[in-house]
């Protein structure tokens, strides 16, 4: 049964007067895994940021609906509390705030109550083990001095700890070594269930191994120019964007 979680209708997004997306129509149902591909600079990160509510991007037309509720004008923190999560392409460093403290604060913010100390500790250990992260990372300042790959793992750790309804993963696999990609995919599989959904932005098919991909979208020239099943991924990785875009033309 199709139950829409995210609906983008006739969305136009601009940054500093410059239109980057126009128009975007997209529906993601609960339980689905969507993949978003497209050439560098096509606007993939912009779309993810706009769904998250990044104030640098302005929705100049259209609507963003989550679980039937119009969130077009909702601030990012409220969206997060309603269940939207973005794994950043380049996560910020926050000196002086340990990963553990941050996760506790974030979990408290998203759930509306402070997590219990022992339960939180147990859960954190479990998820860090799953991602093969050394427990010492919990005591390190958030993303400060983390390698590119460690930052991405920390993003997936946040995904697992916050359990959002909708996860937007922006190139979480880029910069990861082969084993780390596997670990991240494991994390994504552990997160995914029939009630939530993923929009995965990637240039690489590796991260999708072992995931049941429902739809693949290709973004170019401000809009989604093609949508298809998982077979599109092979076409693109083998033949480049030219092969899939030319059919459209």
């Amino acid at each position: 049964m199709n139950c829409p979680l995210l609906e983008l209708r006739d969305l136009q997004v601009a940054v500093e007067e410059k239109i980057i997306l126009d128009p975007i129509d997209l529906t993601i149902n609960k339980g689905e895994v969507h993949v978003l591909m497209g050439p560098n600079g096509a606007g993939k990160s912009t779309l993810a940021a706009a769904i998250m509510g990044d104030p640098r991007f302005t929705v100049t037309r259209g609507t963003v609906t989550l679980d039937g509720e119009d969130i077009t004008d909702t601030a990012a923190d409220a969206r997060a509390r309603k269940g939207v999560f973005l794994s950043f392409q380049a996560p910020e460093e926050i000196p002086g705030v340990t990963l553990e403290n941050f996760l506790r604060t974030a979990q408290g913010a998203v759930r509306g109550e402070q997590p219990k100390v022992m339960a939180f500790r147990r859960e954190l250990k479990k998820q860090m083990d799953l991602l093969g992260m050394d427990g010492a990372y919990a005591e390190r300042y958030l993303n400060v001095g983390f390698s590119g790959g460690e930052k991405k793992k920390a993003e997936i750790l946040q995904l697992l700890m916050l359990q959002p309804k909708l996860a937007l993963l922006d190139e979480t696999d880029s910069g990861l070594d082969v084993d780390a990609v596997k670990t991240v995919t494991q994390g994504i599989r552990a997160y995914h269930n029939a009630e939530n959904a993923l929009l995965i932005i990637t240039h690489n098919a590796k991260i999708l191994e072992g995931l049941d991909v429902d739809r693949v979208h290709v973004l170019d020239q401000h809009r989604i120019v093609r949508t298809g099943g998982p077979e599109l991924i092979r076409e693109i990785t083998e033949g480049g964007f030219g092969s899939v875009l030319s059919e459209e033309a």
């Binding site: 998250m52 509510g53 990044d54 104030p55 640098r56 601030a75 990012a76 923190d77 969206r79 997060a80 509390r81 939207v84 999560f85 973005l86 950043f88 996560p91 910020e92 926050i94 941050f102 604060t105 974030a106 913010a109 998203v110 946040q158 916050l162």
Partner: peptide
């Protein structure tokens, strides 16, 4: 924005 995307006001 990064922190707000994790639910913090």
């Amino acid at each position: 924005f990064y922190l707000m995307s994790r639910g913090l006001s």
